[in-house]
């Protein structure tokens, strides 16, 4: 599976997940190093009404600063930004966050494709995108963009995903740099730090 070893360091990490991804996230966060030198952005499908639940769950499992992304907020290393329920989240050239209340993409808002695509152009080879468990194909188009702009594509091993469809589609349609087991994801992320 491994392509050319990517020597550029990680300037931003985006994790996209849908059905079945919460378990992996809750396993990842307690293990993350406390001084990551890149921001982590989470785009997770969920009901519009479950506003702050995800943020609370993650916050309780890490000493990293966790917040729901604010409109125009600047990304900062070592912080976790969660795409708010019912908005798409885009990244601007100056690394600020834009929110967008436009049509759902793949029946989803926030859509993983939207964030992956906009960040791909901004961070280019510094971007690492991880796609986790899920039962639709949101994120796959976005990973193609990440590839085109020289970023790193990482997919959860579908055999370790509660809902394998999403990572499976990604593995089929995109050339991943790495396929990582759910249990090994935290270690993988910590190694991105340098």
């Amino acid at each position: 599976m491994e392509k050319t070893v990517n020597k550029t360091s990680c300037t931003a990490l985006i994790i996209g997940g849908s059905a079945g991804s919460l378990d992996v996230l809750l396993e990842i966060f307690p293990q993350l190093s406390q001084n990551l030198n890149f921001p982590i952005i989470l785009v997770v499908h969920r009901k519009a009404s479950n506003e702050s639940l995800l943020t609370d769950l993650i916050r309780n499992r890490t000493s990293l600063l966790v917040s729901e992304a604010e409109e125009k907020e600047l990304l900062k290393a070592g912080k976790v930004f969660i795409a708010p329920a019912d908005y798409h989240m885009l990244i601007e050239e100056d690394h600020s966050i834009s929110l967008d209340y436009s049509e759902k993409i793949n029946y989803s808002r926030p859509s993983i494709d939207v964030t992956f695509q906009s960040a791909a152009e901004v961070f280019k080879s510094g971007l690492v995108c991880i796609l986790l468990s899920g039962s639709n194909a949101d994120g796959v188009e976005g990973l193609k963009s990440v590839n085109n702009f020289g970023g790193r594509v990482v997919i959860q091993n579908p055999n370790t995903a509660i809902m394998p469809y999403m990572p499976q589609q990604a593995v089929l349609q995109v050339q991943p740099h790495e396929v990582v087991d759910g249990h090994d994801m935290a270690t993988y992320i910590n190694k991105l730090n340098n």
Partner: peptide, 9 residues
């Protein structure tokens, strides 16, 4: 307008 959104539109 916010650049990323308008570009996407």
């Amino acid at each position: 307008y916010s650049h990323a959104s308008i570009k996407r539109r």
